[in-house]
Design a protein around this nucleic acid. Structure first.
Lengths: 248, 248
DNA sequence: ATAAATATTGCATAATTTTGCATCAAATAG
DNA sequence: CTATTTGATGCAAAATTATGCAATATTTAT
């Protein structure tokens, strides 16, 4: 039995049962539990499920809402934001790029979250201003009215002084060959700086942005560590996974 | 049964019943009360519920406490802002300090006004973001939540690079001998920088602030050029006039 | 085609986590 | 104040996971 077949079986079972147990899978697939564990591990690595002690559960935006039958028809951005939220841990320093995806993320911050957030987005600052646990640092600069962000040298300089645990990039175009691109030169310059300032770079991208490109380059595709998207199972993402990116 | 299933069950029960008891859960889930307690603990850790003696209750649904902003002297400030407005001319570059007085001023900007505004106040940025004729430059830095402004070295550095025609200082204490003072060292440092960066310094002050002092000095009284206030005829202002200040 | 390199798999063993229980401290009710 | 319940802590048994290793299969290079 090929490895691929096993992985396929696991995902299928996960979809129908909403959970899988290692002992069960080991029996079903006639392989050792070690192998099952390693299979689950690789699937978890690609964000296709969440490994827990004793088995695995589906990758759900909320790590603890396990078998939630009430399906909210959330829009894509909220789904993405909810997933991205699970990447955050107390005590981290993160950068939030401008854009509606990152704003959605900021809106979801639970009250108990303790973070330091550096951003160039006015709505994000407004959103987080009243949050008790988040220290907000605003990158200064010239306000761009229609995007409600600041850009320019001052903004870039501020980000250059930062070492963030995670940098979240708002929706941009992603292309395996061309890399990450955006439509505005000044905006992309800021985004490039964010990429450099972050240990881990997470791109929030709706699947319709995949495989597209704009005129100004932000970074290469491998400079991204994680893509958080609404349809992670789409075959569209296979090449990205092969390049070592995590797709959630 | 996976731990996650237990956690899920607990959360679901909590949603329907609005409370959970350890003894009940222990029975429902067929695990010891210790385990239930540990489960509740981990859920509480993640902010998903509040642990109470004997069980748990749901996390407050309205976690974000919006501070009620009690506005003192709102009408006075409007009067002051209206007078200050008359000092502005098209094409000027001005600095707006944080505070409600300066915010009132920004709110009065007529649509045809052409200005460049540099500020460290978030509400002012939000207010002016949609103004067609005003270019807004935001000084970056760490957000102070209750005053909704940014302070710190980055903020100061930004103001140091500026030469403004007029700098508007929000309400501070004024005293003929002590000068202009404020209650917070970091805030006063920023204000001092604004004073230095401005050709003309305008203080917006309700009359009750006259003759009072705080602990941290912003500048000498003669560094101010104009005081805009609600009761300019008051004899309180005679000494300031004698020192050459304009009182409006 | 053959050899070498690489990856997969299962097993033994060690380390870690989870769980339930006993014990004692703290809080609550009567 | 005392009895009872609940919470905290240490501990040991059981389950799960990680790790090293050898056997086997697969891929790559020559």
């Amino acid at each position: 039995m090929l490895k691929e077949e096993r992985l396929d079986y696991i995902l299928k079972k996960l979809r129908t049962d909403q959970k899988v147990l290692q002992t069960e899978l080991s029996n079903d697939l006639q392989v050792s539990e070690d192998t099952v564990r390693r299979d689950l591990e690789s699937l978890a690595q690609n964000g296709l499920l969440i490994k827990v002690r004793g088995g695995a559960i589906p990758h759900s935006p909320n790590p603890y809402s396990f078998k939630e039958r009430i399906v909210f028809h959330e829009d894509d951005k909220k789904v993405i934001a909810r997933k991205a939220l699970s990447l955050l841990e107390n005590g981290q320093t993160i950068i939030l790029d401008g854009g509606t995806s990152t704003l959605s993320l900021a809106k979801l911050f639970p009250q108990h979250l303790q973070l330091r957030v550096i951003t160039n987005s006015v709505p994000i600052v407004v959103q987080l201003m009243d949050h008790p646990g988040v220290e907000v640092i605003f990158a200064g600069g010239k306000i761009v009215k229609d995007s409600q962000t600041v850009i320019g040298m001052d903004t870039i300089r501020m980000f250059q002084k930062v070492r963030a645990d995670i940098g979240f990039l708002g929706v941009c175009s992603l292309h395996t060959a061309v890399g990450v691109t955006g439509p505005d030169i000044e905006e992309t310059e800021v985004k490039s700086t964010i990429v450099e300032a972050s240990s881990r770079v997470v791109a929030l991208a709706t699947s319709d942005k995949m495989g597209t490109a704009e005129h100004f380059k932000i970074c290469g595709i491998t400079d991204i560590d994680t893509i958080v998207t609404d349809q992670p199972e789409d075959e569209l993402f296979i090449p990205y996974r092969q390049m070592g990116l995590q797709v959630l």
